[in-house]
Design a protein around this nucleic acid. Structure first.
Length: 416
RNA sequence: GUGGUCGUAGCUCAGCUGGUUAGAGCGUCAGGUUGUGGCCCUGAAGGCCGGGGGUUCAAGUCCCCUCGAUCACCCCA
């Protein structure tokens, strides 16, 4: 056992998984750019206050913040998500509206790790600031939906709800609080604690004991203002227009309490665990203001990279890309020839692997085979003397000897 | 943070009710005569049995603690 190992909730991503990650973010950036979003790369840590604006009763803020004092006495925190950083950046740079950004990177949450829930976890996502247009909501939601579909995922369900505007939400919380209080005798003791802290979250309880009470709870729909209702109706209409199937669930409240109006979640039905939410998002009208900026509406989503890949595993889609080495150079004369040939070929754009440490030809050939190279170039004593190279196809085993000077020209026939 | 389960070679796992030098498959490396891969054969390297303490004549096998993973709650991506 090695003396040092990765800290709890963190891990190394090695090849070929790392290649899969690269492919994943490449797919996402293509999709986001195609929809008019541009990348933002915010710092991984910020002043703790930036994240505290996410909500005083939010667990992400109160219990899970990865914060520390730096050497300058600043209280900073590793970002638990990107949205707050994006809003802070918006206030700092004041871009023209609407501001459409996408991101990809790690977030940190100090919580107990388990499969699909890590302390350092990667997300990709988009944020759109400066527009109230419900059609934008629909487009954003569809962007995530289509991305999942593009990976090959089929067992994904979109759940959507509206939390109304600020006042609506407050009013509903009170209605819910009095309902739950009236039934507190039947609630689990965990839910009683949640009730005191944040009544909305009781709706998320997964305990059997709470099921009946949660099912009978008043719906937030009756508390929505006319404006919020109309907005929500148009969002759903937009989803229909875009051909995105959805399920309205008026119990979907989500954990960050900055959400207003539209809120949604992508759930993988192929994942047989509690960590089955592979993405989520919503409107956060008000967050920019909380960070000291002008009143600015915003909507976005974040997709969990780790969890989405777990869902891909479960569905058997989006496998790691296969290795694509063009050429492998075998040299049994010491290595000088392999070094020169590999360098020359890489200079003209080939991907070239080779062996080191002067291994036997048999050993080098085995490596060539494993590298996935389509063609192996062999230089032995006689080739070195005559300034030639053997070009061997690793597919059918045919080979020919050619002049070293004509190597680059010859290979153009194999790779065009 | 709370509770349950698990922790043996790089990987996947065997090791019966505690008892001689801890095993297999895969992987790695080296060979299988005259310079060449994929199949096959042979051999080798690699494990203080997660770590610490205890019970016992004797522990990978039992007990305690600890670390880690995992499952549920919680939370959320």
């Amino acid at each position: 056992m090695a003396e040092f190992q990765t800290s709890p909730g963190t891990r190394d991503i090695l090849h070929p998984d790392s290649a899969r990650w690269r492919a994943f973010t490449a797919r996402f950036s293509d999709a986001a750019e195609a929809a008019g979003f541009h990348q933002i790369i915010p710092p991984m840590f910020e002043d703790l206050g930036v994240f505290q604006r996410l909500g005083e009763v939010t667990d992400v803020v109160t219990k899970e913040m990865y914060d520390f004092m730096d050497k300058g006495g600043r209280h900073v925190a590793l970002r638990p998500e990107h949205t707050a950083s994006v809003c802070r950046a918006f206030v700092q740079h004041r871009p023209t509206l609407p501001w459409l950004v996408w991101y990809a990177g790690p977030n940190f949450r100090y919580e107990k790790a388990q499969h699909g829930r890590y302390r350092q976890f990667d997300q990709v996502g988009v944020e759109a600031l400066g527009s109230n247009d419900p059609w934008l909501d629909a487009e954003v939601i569809a962007l995530g939906w289509n991305f999942f579909a593009g990976l090959g995922l089929r067992d994904v369900k979109l759940v959507i709800n509206s939390l109304g505007d600020d006042g609506d939400r407050e009013r509903y919380v009170e209605i819910l609080r009095s309902y739950l209080s009236a039934n507190s005798g039947d609630l689990s003791k965990e839910s009683l604690e949640t009730l005191a802290r944040n009544p909305l979250r009781v709706l998320d309880s997964k305990r059997d004991q709470d099921a009946a009470i949660v099912a009978g709870a008043p719906s937030i729909r009756e508390s929505l203002s006319d404006a919020a209702k109309e907005h929500f109706a148009t969002v759903l209409e937009g989803l229909d227009t875009l051909g995105v199937p959805f399920t309205v669930n008026d119990r979907l409240v989500r954990g960050l309490d900055y959400y207003r109006r539209t809120t949604f979640e992508y759930v993988s039905t192929a994942l047989d665990s509690a960590q089955n939410a592979i993405g989520g998002g919503g409107r956060y009208d008000g967050l920019v203001e909380d960070l000291g900026g002008p009143a600015t509406p915003g909507i976005g989503f974040a997709l969990g990279l780790d969890r989405t890949l777990l869902a891909c595993d479960a569905e058997g889609v989006f496998a790691a890309p296969t290795d694509s080495t063009d050429l492998f150079v075998v040299d049994t004369t010491g290595g000088a020839n392999a070094t020169a040939i590999a360098a020359a070929l890489r200079n003209v754009g080939h991907s070239v692997a080779r062996a080191y440490d002067s291994r036997s030809m048999k050993s080098q050939m085995k490596q060539a085979d494993k590298s996935g190279a389509k063609v192996t170039l062999i230089v032995g004593e006689s080739e070195a003397e005559t300034n030639t190279v053997i070009v061997r196809s690793m597919v059918d085993g045919t080979q020919r000897t050619i002049a070293r000077d004509s190597l680059i020209e010859e290979l153009k026939k194999e790779f065009k």
